[in-house]
Nucleic acid binder design. Sequence first.
RNA 1: GGUCCGGUGGCCGAGUGGCUAGGCAGAGCUCUGCAAAAGCUUCCACAGCGGUUCGAAUCCGCUCUGGACCUCCA
Length: 499
Amino acid sequence: MSLRVHNSLSRKKETFKSITDGHVGMYVCGPTVSGESHLGHARPFITFDVIYRYLLSLGYKVRYVRNITDAGHFEEEGREAEDKISSKAVIEKLEPMELVQKYTNLFHWAMTQFNNLPPSIEPTATGHIVEQINMIEEIIKDGYAYVANGSVYFDVEKYNSDFSKKGQPYGLLSGRNIEEQQDTTRELENQDEKRNKNDFALWKNAPPEHIMRWKSPWGEGFPGWHIECSAMSTKYLGDEFDIHGGGMDLIFPHHECEIAQSTVCNHKTPARYWLHNNMITINGRKMGKSYNNVIKLSELFGGTHPLLTQAFHPMTIRFFILQTHYRSTLDFSNEALIAAEKGLKRLWEGYENLQKLRVTSNQQPETETDSKALKLLGEFDEFMDDDFNTAKVLANMFELVPIINGLKNKQLEADTLSPSTIQSLQQKFKIYLEDIFGLRGDSVDNEQLNGVLQLLINIRKEAKAKKDFVTSDTIRNELIKLGVQLKDEKDGTVSYSVN
RNA sequence: GGUCCGGUGGCCGAGUGGCUAGGCAGAGCUCUGCAAAAGCUUCCACAGCGGUUCGAAUCCGCUCUGGACCUCCA
């Protein structure tokens, strides 16, 4: 069995083979910290966190690099050239780095909420200005960039004609044909500095009012958007590394440009496997700033957005995302999240029940259920090896839940499953749910609350014994209103779950 | 206009030739003082029209339709 991944470069599933045995280098495009993260941002970071975790579970030593873009991107909206961070800083009356710090902190907070593992290295663009300048100088020296009015542009035309001969034309990743694009690119004004519409900025001359600026051989300015990823991935992962990840919307132009820059400097396509997650949509439309339809993570966790009827736990979001294959769009709605919340609750309670199952008999039954369970369990690895199909693993888990609950509630014979099957279930569920999927329950380990509830449970029990159902039902119903659900177990005990 | 990807039951969503996906919601039953929880059973699909095939949600063609990228974007 071996891992197969869908490579955007070939548009096919390929068997994954790392460049260095036992090691994987993975670069994932991180956030631009000029604003608060929204639900759409959550998807890549959760997706690649699970990929990272799965690679670790396969025994790879992984260097996972995820950048923070804290040097404003050059933005072209019609004729205006604008730096996102600079302009936002002016609006919020903050020093640019103050703004960047604020949103970096918020981003890290969200990542913690999602239980994402921290990357091995989290480099910032502003911390690598020197590397970026060096790289730009190299590209100029090789003749693939030119200086104009203190800015530097990448010469896409020249790159394409030279590298096409080597089988590396510009547009390799996105399937774009540069000749065809000439006619289809939209008219942008103030583009006279560029020799060609397809050329992109490596370095941008900073106008006097621009507050984020660095000295460079070409005057004071700031780096173009694409160069930071090339510079930082090369620095920490080398000329060629295993996996480059990000959202599908980055394929063009961002990743295409990265490939061009890195190929000039390092003479290789930087990464072997390009993995891209699909978008989260809302009413069938991509959630994005430009569409003005984003739901911020803080609004989601707090239930403060008008489209939401309640707050949603970060784990619900995580589970919601994992229920879909990462390369499919995922349509968000309040209803879908509620469904995910209930599903996760059921799954997690099944998981907890499973861990409490005691192995008593030592028989090795040949029951159909036993072999079914083993089959479902065995497929976990197959599904993950098939381009990280978390959705199918979860479906199998849900098929196992009734067996687990049936055993717990004695609706199934105690020896329906063999002890070894139960142990495999316990181990595999733990590895998958906690280590690979990164899910966790909110364990209510509150002795005070537990004590209070035990008291109420005992009072209710006494009331029931006296057939005082008014009292017993009051306790049960009032607790439900407070989010505590009492469960009368088969053996006469009472347990509870807190929402 | 160019490039690409979709259209699956009330909702979300797996699935690339034959086998029940799964979750949520709905219905019935068991259990229960009544419920809840749990278990069991069950209803509701593959945009349309052709074609290939013994057999298609799955392959091919056409039509309709939604979306992404081409500009910052996860």
